[in-house]
């Protein structure tokens, strides 16, 4: 893996379209956490923000699957921007 940490944690909803990130943590109730985990959102997972208009839901790519994620949900996911390619 070739990654260069930019060392900047932020919530996923603030990530710009086209940027790669690695999930640091996910908050929220247990149900949300389990649902997210079942669809690939876990700490250490890499993702690409495909589309973020600044309002409404985002589209992210989890190295396998495209997922539309509500803005409220994206706020609960803390990521670190990273130059990263899928394994």
């Amino acid at each position: 893996m070739n990654m260069k940490a930019v060392n900047e944690d932020m919530s996923l909803d603030r990530m710009k379209s086209g940027s790669w990130a690695v999930i640091q943590s996910i908050s929220g109730d247990k149900k949300f956490v389990r649902r997210a985990a079942g669809r690939g959102f876990t700490p250490e997972a890499a993702l690409l923000v495909i589309q973020n208009f600044g309002i409404g839901p985002l589209i992210v790519f989890l190295c396998d699957t495209q997922v539309a994620l509500g803005r409220g949900e994206a706020k609960k996911i803390i990521v670190r921007r990273q130059q990263h390619e899928c394994e």
Binding site: A36, I59, A68, E73
Partner: peptide
């Protein structure tokens, strides 16, 4: 109950 928002796969 807790609102579970969108986590929708785009197949």
């Amino acid at each position: 109950g807790a609102e579970t928002g969108m986590i929708m796969e785009l197949p």
